[in-house]
Amino acid sequence: MFKHILLPTDGSVLSEGAIRKGVHLAKSMKAKITGISVMPEQKYYLYQTDIIVQVKEETVKQHRMQVNRNLAFIEKAAKEAGVPCETFCDSCDYPYEAIIRVAEKRACDLIMMASHGQRGIKGLLLGSETQKVLTHSKIPVLVVR
């Protein structure tokens, strides 16, 4: 029934677990997957002094490396299982917005994500981004533990 599963990742151990399960589900249902990792936009670098530009470039570079690592993990998992896969990087200060936007734009019919992400159990019982995706998504969401 599910034809296109969105797998958001922030590179955390739990999200890697969710990716494995997502790829397995996609394989069983003959669905394709889209992996997404969201980079912060960092609008707060407003003042363009030399030193800030330098810091910004450095952080953006680091974020990009992290995102590439995250997406490479999805691509590898999908390739091993023989599941068609696309990956996608988006910049947004609120990851949940980007996740829902991409899911809708790409006509995904399921979002599958871990209960917690990088910020771990600090987000208490359910991670904050997962909670927000659950609240705002019109597409079914599967929370993996």
């Binding site: 399960k21 359910l126 659950l134 609240t135 705002h136 079914p140 969401v141 599967l142 929370v143 533990r145």
Partner: peptide
């Protein structure tokens, strides 16, 4: 916005939860 039952279940369940709209 989000039902109180599905909120509680998705918070406390030990297994995966799929919420459908």
């Amino acid at each position: 916005v989000f039902g109180s039952v599905s909120t509680k279940v998705s918070h406390y369940a030990a297994c995966p939860v799929m919420v459908v709209r």
